[in-house]
Simulated scan of single mutants.
Amino acid sequence: MKNYIQSGDTVTAPAPAGGTVSGLLYVIGSLIGVATITAVEGVNVPFKTSGVYELPKTSALAIAVGDAVYWDAANKVVNKTSAGNTLVGYATEAAANPSAVGRFRLNV
């Protein structure tokens, strides 16, 4: 097939304002991905766009398997609040209140 480019599970894009930290989630426009490297703003970074990741969450929040989760860019955590946040995926494991992290499948 002549028009095939790549599988799409990793997409390279410039690091957003403030740069990236390897393993953290970023929303760039409508692109959702986990940075694979730490880089300064503007450097091309491979972002993983699929898979299950352990990510920071709102500590005082219980999350059940299958709950839709959203990225709170201001606080850099996953939560269940859709208003003003970006849908990033679904919980693959329950996360208790309190707990600092949860496991989530990225919404591709």
Rank of each mutant, 00 (worst) to 15 (best):
L106R: 06
A60S: 11
V27C: 07
A17Q: 07
A100T: 14
V34A: 02
T38Y: 08
T20W: 04
K76D: 11
K2H: 12
W71K: 02
K76S: 12
T86W: 12
V52R: 10
M1Q: 08
N107R: 11
S82L: 09
Y4I: 06
N44V: 06
P14H: 03
V11A: 02
A94D: 15
G66Q: 07
A94N: 14
N44Y: 06
G19N: 04
S22P: 02
G51C: 05
S7T: 12
V101L: 11
A64N: 13
G18T: 01
A35S: 09
K80Y: 00
G89P: 02
V40T: 14
N75V: 01
P46R: 00
D72R: 01
D9K: 10
P98R: 02
A96V: 12
Y26T: 06
T10L: 10
I37P: 00
L61Y: 06
V21I: 13
A94G: 15
L31W: 06
Q6H: 15
V40H: 08
K2G: 14
V101H: 15
T58Q: 12
V11Q: 10
N107Y: 14
L87N: 05
A94M: 10
A64T: 15
A68S: 14
L55M: 10
A13I: 12
V45G: 04
T92C: 10
A94C: 07
G66M: 07
S99C: 08
V88Q: 02
A39S: 11
L55C: 00
P16D: 03
V65N: 06
A95S: 14
